[in-house]
Computed example of a mutant assay.
Amino acid sequence: MQAARKLSGDLTELKLLRIEREETQRLKKGKQTMEDSTAKRLSEMENALRKASGQVDRANAAVRRLETENAEIRAEMEASKLSASESVTTCLEVAKREKKCLKRLLAWEKQKTKLQAEIADEKGKIKELQQCLANIEHARKEAEVCYIPKSTTDTYTHKLH
């Protein structure tokens, strides 16, 4: 901005110097030294104007580059915000699923405990039945040992009963 203001001022001064130069040329050659100094000043001003123009161009290019970088950074920030929002949503969904799974796991654990208790009861019943069967088998063997038919008539009688 300062360079542009200076450039504008320099342009105005350049115009004035040109007008002054034309006036001095009209006033005659006797004023050659003044013309030389004016020409020198004019040349210096033109050089300063070129330098100022270059500086303005470089400043404008830097502004455009910074604006582009700023836009890219803003876009990256928006993308990061969106990604963070999606991550939060995903985390919340995962937490809900985890909670449901934990509830199901607890229900399964209760069911497993209940089934294990039932299995233990059934195993106890099986042991009781096996013991009862063993007692019956033992009693049958003792009955066979105790009962030996003495004759065929006893066998025949035994078969009738």
Rank of each mutant, 00 (worst) to 15 (best):
K6P: 00
D10W: 07
D10Y: 07
D10V: 04
L11C: 02
R18C: 05
I19K: 12
R21K: 03
E22V: 05
T24R: 09
T24E: 08
L27S: 09
K28Q: 12
M34V: 14
T38C: 14
A39P: 05
R41P: 00
R41H: 02
L42M: 06
S43M: 06
E44A: 02
A48H: 03
A48L: 06
R50A: 09
A52F: 01
Q55M: 08
V56G: 00
V56H: 00
D57A: 09
R58V: 08
N60D: 08
R64C: 02
R64A: 09
L66V: 04
L66D: 04
L66F: 04
L66R: 05
E69C: 03
N70E: 13
N70G: 09
E72K: 09
E72T: 07
I73K: 10
R74C: 08
A79Q: 11
S85M: 12
T90Q: 14
A95V: 06
A95T: 07
R97E: 01
E98N: 15
L102M: 05
L106C: 13
L106N: 13
W108V: 15
K110F: 08
K110G: 07
Q111H: 07
K112M: 15
K114N: 10
K114F: 09
Q116G: 05
Q116R: 12
E118A: 01
E118G: 00
A120Q: 07
A120I: 03
A120V: 03
D121R: 11
E122W: 10
E128Q: 11
Q130G: 05
N135I: 10
E137W: 08
H138Q: 13
H138I: 11
H138L: 15
A139H: 04
R140L: 11
E142R: 03
E142T: 04
Y147C: 12
P149Q: 09
P149L: 10
K150W: 02
T153F: 14
T155E: 13
T157Y: 07
K159P: 01
K159Q: 12
